[in-house]
Design a protein around this nucleic acid. Structure first.
Lengths: 232, 232
DNA sequence: TGTACATCAGTGAACGCGCGTTCACTGATGTAC
DNA sequence: TGTACATCAGTGAACGCGCGTTCACTGATGTAC
């Protein structure tokens, strides 16, 4: 359900314009009041929020243009250049924000879970939940080419946000406790992560194919991965 | 290696233009001779080949415009409309062609392999090889939003080309022969496919992160999936 | 307290470009009689 | 064999639009003296 993108959602068909609005068929002008001195960074946040809302509504980062963002924020398009050197940087900053949200979601999910195997399972579930609850954001971060360039963070930059470190730690703990058989934690972490990513990215990319219940498929994938690691 | 996209490849910097070429800084005009009567479909193939070459070189389907394709083919841009109703249809046709190539690659890969478990392994390897050898094509088929719309084939349409049926058959055979434990073949097939897709799509989306040798990671994923299915 | 100046947070107009698509057309090749 | 006509495989010019980005500017607010 939540994995269904809003790509085809009809927006602003002209019906919801106020009668006296200028006849630009798209959206209301939405004038914004200028930030107080020292609070110029406020606009930066508004820009990123507008960018995110446009990806969510249109289903594609292509539509997140400097002009569309400015119009949604209620500022002029040159104002974007007060905070970003170009469009690509704006989009990358949007991805960075999403990565940090993902990182927080994963940290919260394992809060207070002592058992390493449970931690593994819950990390995977939380990751999938984030992806399926924010499919357009996930797609932009993890699957798209942005402004003609891959948004290509290094492994080191991603480790914390992707839950890599959490997973590696859980596996290491599991091996130490004897629950899991000795193995290379990084390789095992990659395998589990790739599996969950595979499932959710299929749901996001091909939302109309009837694959079954995503939660079941995620759990199946996670259990298969975790069972493969257990001591026998 | 082969998973590295050509996104940043510098093209046609003006230096390799012939001296007497028109000063359109991009590429030579490449005039084409018109097809003979009854061979109009020839152009259609040339259009799809040009479209593919542009994705490969630029690393993004955004750059596959009707005008860029026409210029590469050596025809006028209205000629594209002789074969496709619009740009999106052209891009979808390109994807269809790639899907059929993938389907062929998988069929060829398992030709003559009797053992179901070997077949499973080889299907997965061939799938990964196709994806990593044609990363831009794979991205377009499986990860991108095209012209603002998901290229969203149904499960039924994809089953043959994705190797789904091959995998389901191998699992069914494996269960029949006793090599694999009884399970739901469709679910197991999805899990294996999602795992391989997860690995290759990570390599394609984040080519500069050092994940390790893709072939090893694929084999690790496949063995983990297959071992999970074995009788004990 | 008054005033010159610096800084901040923006804006309006314009630039040149490339895009998808439509339209009316052209010229070669086949077919009917 | 000649000729009118139909069909095929295209093309050139133009349409209107939206894009990223630059430029010179404005007006409010703070600071130094």
């Amino acid at each position: 359900m939540s994995s269904r993108p809003a790509a085809t959602k009809a927006r602003a068909k002209g019906a919801n314009n106020t009668p006296d609005a200028p006849s630009t068929s798209t959206s209301p002008p939405a004038a914004r009041t200028r930030s107080k001195r020292g609070e110029g960074r406020q606009l930066r946040e508004e820009i990123l929020a507008a960018a995110e809302s446009i990806v969510v509504e249109t289903g594609t980062v292509e539509k997140v243009t400097t002009r569309a963002v400015a119009q949604r924020v209620g500022c002029s398009s040159p104002s974007i250049y007060l905070h970003f050197p170009d469009r690509a940087s704006m989009l990358f900053a949007m991805c960075e924000l999403q990565f940090s949200h993902l990182g927080e979601a994963l940290s919260n999910a394992i809060n207070g879970i002592d058992d390493p195997v449970d931690r593994l399972l819950e990390t995977g579930r939380a990751y999938a939940r984030f992806a399926l609850d924010h499919p357009q954001q996930y797609r932009t971060m993890m699957m798209d080419v942005i402004a003609g360039v891959s948004y290509d963070r290094t492994l080191e930059e991603m480790r914390a946000d992707l839950g890599f470190d959490i997973v590696v730690q859980a596996i290491t703990d599991g091996i130490a406790s004897g629950a899991l058989a000795p193995t290379e934690p990084l390789l095992a972490a990659f395998a589990i992560w790739a599996h969950v990513h595979g499932v959710v990215s299929i749901f996001i990319a091909k939302p109309h194919a009837d694959w079954g219940d995503p939660a079941d498929l995620i759990d199946f994938a996670l259990r298969q991965g975790i069972d493969g690691l257990r001591s026998r």
